[in-house]
Design a protein around this nucleic acid. Structure first.
Lengths: 340, 340
DNA sequence: CTGAAAGCGCTAACAA
DNA sequence: TTGTTAGCGCTTTCAG
């Protein structure tokens, strides 16, 4: 795995010194012209700029980071890079951090604490200036490592009374409760949850169930499916639910794709939605609005989560005091469409 | 944007020297114990290991990379991180590189040459040991920069007679031609293409059209939609096609999601698929097999592309000669299901 | 098998 | 406004 490889003999890349010589200034002046242009008179700045272009100079950010103790890198650890749920957040992180001169370094933890630990070790080795995590359930090791290294940390997409540092998210329990009430308000009584194997989805399901009990409804049927949630899982789940003796008239799915599967199977079996069964998804992906029937779902402002997380990291790096960057609850909303 | 921030005063992270002192050896021995364990006797190795754990030492990879001229980082530039089409490739890259001790650094170019240029500059600053690109259409600036820096480069998901360096992909023209013949073989004659705004999709569409002409069929109708392709776009496209005077009996969509939209609209309008219209997608996403009717689509082994690309980068870094790492055509297959 | 010296490329800190 | 010096943390190189 870590063989003693030959030292690479690629041609040495141009350095500040090359640029400095060509521009007839010192290395330090080149550095300043690039990083703090306002501290260098326009004439010198232009000479440096010309030399940079002539030599195709690209600063070595490893060296910059090592010397200045700022890597200009922020790491984000996401359960699944492919998941459309987080892509708005990743976009917003990239954009907001980019505008402030930071690069986003993406890692995928794969929904498990074990993967997260290993990934975190690798990530910390690159000395990012801050870390954004999706979720609040981390191993003790992860929490200690992060709390110990004094780096700005934002946990996202969830809430907790005991964040590692900063927090931007919403209450999954509230989502589960709200959706249950939403379905109950329409007179649905025999409820079910189709849920992917993911801690946050599980908490939504749990609160959904607790609320049903609280409302005096029969205990909802729970169908668990593997991650990632697919259209096929949704179809299968509905088939399973239809075999249930008590029957079902309202289903909360832990993703829009699962819900689309439920809609697909319902159409295939000529089961009326929303007539006989109400279906609610989660995520408000683009497909939700255009499904047939249009999918009622839970909308979360993923872009805002990304933006706020980025601003918090940047603020903390710039030295903002902790209290200004308290936890933020971005909330959620139920988008009522045709399906439920 | 680049303000003179205060030097971060986080507590100094532990360094090799701290570990060395604790283990009673020199810094060099610590380094060797970690990077070339076989060159250090077990006894010393264990003492070092113990000291590493006691101090929570995490090597500074910026310093490692700077000194050794190996960042152990490979960059991948993808048009859209959220796109499910590339997620298998990204997974395989991560896994294959990870097994060889490399980290993947992901960047999103956003389907445009302009974005790619800027991103590339940022990426090169981090001094990756290799670069994986999706696509073969790059600006002259990008090509020169990459060719000039002597870094291993793999272009993927396409073929070209003039690669920058290495190449792992398949022919989009062949895909377009094959799908056209596939539909024609079933007696479909009034064909159409629904295509996202993306160069590779455009080439598939072009070859599809050329093949139709070659087969003596009427010129296919082309519907272009914005990226990213959504279910809604697919529905809209079918509505548009149904208004076409000549009628349509076979549709090639540039993504499975678009195709699902076509299926959805067809079901809504009670248009028989495959009876009246045949539908073919692209990508063989999980949803394809479970759509109703099951979606005929083009399967590409994205995981293999990622694996082979990673192996080529690793091989080149390890000093393998260029000829061994020639271009690879991974091909594709049409997966016939119910829809067309 | 182990260590000492040197320096990767850059910028903080200070001096002029 | 500009330059000089030193050193970030590590590993290459060479000597023991």
């Amino acid at each position: 795995m870590t063989q003693p490889l030959p030292t690479p003999d690629r041609q040495r890349a141009t350095t500040v010194l090359d640029v400095a010589r060509l521009a007839g200034v010192s290395a330090m002046t080149v550095s300043r012209a690039l990083n703090q242009p306002q501290r260098v008179p326009p004439a010198t700045r232009q000479r440096v700029q010309a030399a940079v272009e002539a030599t195709h100079y690209v600063p070595n950010l490893l060296a910059c980071g090592l010397r200045s103790r700022r890597s200009r890198l922020v790491a984000a650890i996401v359960p699944a890079l492919g998941s459309p749920v987080f892509s708005e957040t990743v976009q917003a992180l990239t954009a907001t951090l980019g505008a402030a001169g930071y690069h986003l370094m993406l890692g995928q933890s794969g929904y498990g604490a074990a993967g997260e630990d290993a990934l975190l070790q690798a990530v910390i080795g690159r000395r990012p200036d801050g870390i954004v995590l999706v979720g609040v359930d981390h191993s003790r090791q992860t929490r200690e490592r992060l709390a110990g290294c004094g780096m700005p940390v934002v946990e996202t997409w969830d809430l907790t009374p005991t964040p590692i540092d900063m927090l931007v998210g919403f209450s999954h329990a509230d989502v589960g409760a709200a959706v249950c009430r939403f379905l109950a308000d329409q007179g649905r009584r025999r409820l079910a949850v189709v849920s992917g194997a993911d801690g946050r989805a599980a908490r939504r399901a749990q609160a959904f169930t607790a609320t049903a009990e609280h409302l005096g409804l029969p205990a909802p049927v729970l169908v668990e499916v593997d991650a990632p949630t697919t259209l096929g899982h949704g179809r299968q789940a509905l088939r399973q639910l239809l075999g249930h003796p008590a029957g079902v008239d309202g289903i909360f799915c832990s993703s829009d794709m699962l819900a689309l599967g439920v809609l697909t199977e319902a159409a295939h079996q000529r089961i009326a939605v929303p007539g006989r069964i109400g279906v609610v998804g989660f995520g408000d992906q683009p497909l939700a609005a255009d499904a047939e029937p249009a999918l009622t779902t839970v909308r979360v402002d993923g872009a805002r989560i990304g933006r706020e997380a980025a601003l918090r990291v940047i603020g903390r790096i710039a030295g903002a005091p902790a209290p200004e960057l308290a936890a933020l609850d971005v909330g959620f909303s139920i988008v009522p469409r045709r399906s439920g």
